[in-house]
Nucleic acid binder design. Structure first.
Lengths: 224, 224
DNA sequence: AGTTTATGTAAAGATTGGTTAAATATCAAG
DNA sequence: CTTGATATTTAACCAATCTTTACATAAACT
């Protein structure tokens, strides 16, 4: 999942924010001063940086402007009060959002999520997928076989949609898990088999999903 | 796509903002003073106006108040500092949002997008929504089921309306909150469940709202 | 045949959503 | 400014459902 870098010298804040982010599945990296922050940003290539404006060594704004020279990463600035000047200067230097201390962790997490969602958008299209008698509508999350609606669970739907989006190509269990579960899944690969069994059962003979022994599964879009 | 009018006498700012907006597919019009701005607004009927408060000729606020007499267009005010007075006066005269200079083009673009998104989907249409036995009148904010009026609270109404406007599509709790509560809500997502429970209770079996487990809710417009 | 890989099934475990009730916020009227 | 009515939000519980694991069986390949 997404990588987040927190640059702040107050351990309590770093701890608090990490505690909120990690359970959500984010990879959280931290740095306690500007130099370390810049290095960490280069090393880990985070998707988002939470940056305290008050830092020992390099000042937060200075760090931000340096960061901007080499990266387009989304930066949320943490400012010490509603010092309006901080806000203005911060935004002019290139911050994407800012949160004033004291802040609610919940709000910060919400902003982070919103930002990442916005960044990621454009991933899965919402086009209707139709093959033979199978029709998949991602917007409505409905599936019909011969115009008869079929009820699928969330995972079953995502699995079928992923296969259909890559119709004609074999997808390994790992690839399917990457798409449907995301990269922080550490369970068995065999889950895929079980859910696929359920999909086949529900779609009947028209499931169009072929097994490629030793490799994975393929959604058949044409007769072979 | 959407039409945006920028009214500002500083060519550098006009250029900068245009440069950010045009690649996004917006039709961008510009005007360098108040008179031209008002004319342009009448001629092009933009969906959104970015208006600098400091203008030669007619002052920005004066222009805004004139504009308001004839149009309901969304206006983002560009103010020269964080003069709180500017903000307050601006909003009281009818601006919908404001950005302080110097600003990050990125932020301005984000706000424009957000505003247009909100306009397009939510408050936009005032058409009566009728499905099966449910009839929703956004202008009067009334709902009837089988011609019998049903009393809904503000949030319940907006929630139902939002779902009906996107009938046939699944909306996540986040999307519903974005529409009904706006983008700066940082409370629990489950609040949606509670209000939905109330709506269902009041509308009875005809609520037409389906739960899509693990995803969100969908307003059913046809039998599947 | 023997090995490997996939399928079907069932039961344990985890999530999710409906519901309720209490806490909090909002608003109008006194 | 209080009060009371109403609306909204939070939190908790529980039932329903989904997900995962495990294992037995079946099929495919060597």
């Amino acid at each position: 999942m997404a990588k987040i870098l927190i640059i702040d010298d107050e351990p309590s804040i770093v701890k608090l924010v990490s505690a909120y982010l990690q359970p959500e599945g984010y990879e959280v990296y931290t740095a306690a001063d500007g130099i370390a922050g810049l290095k960490a940003a280069r090393a880990y290539k985070p998707d988002l940086v939470v940056l305290d404006i008050m830092l020992p060594g390099i000042d937060g704004l200075e760090l931000l402007s340096r960061l901007r020279r080499e990266s387009d990463v989304y930066v949320i600035l943490l400012t010490a009060r509603t010092e309006e000047t901080d806000k203005i200067v911060g935004l002019s230097v290139g911050a994407d959002d800012y949160v004033t201390k004291p802040f609610s962790p919940r709000e910060l997490v919400a902003r982070i999520k919103a930002a990442l969602r916005r960044l990621k958008s454009g991933a899965g299209s919402n086009e209707i997928l139709a093959f033979k008698h199978v029709r998949i509508d991602p917007a409505a999350r409905t599936v019909t076989v011969n115009s008869i609606p079929v009820e699928l669970t969330a995972i079953e739907f995502d699995l079928l949609k992923t296969l259909a989006e890559h119709h004609g190509r074999v997808l390994t269990r790992e690839q399917l898990i990457e798409h449907v579960w995301g990269s922080n899944y550490y369970g068995e690969m065999r889950v895929v088999d079980v859910h696929l069994g359920h999909i086949r059962q529900k779609l009947g003979d028209e499931s169009l999903i072929a097994t490629v022994r030793g490799v994975g599964y393929r959604f058949e879009d044409e007769v072979l």
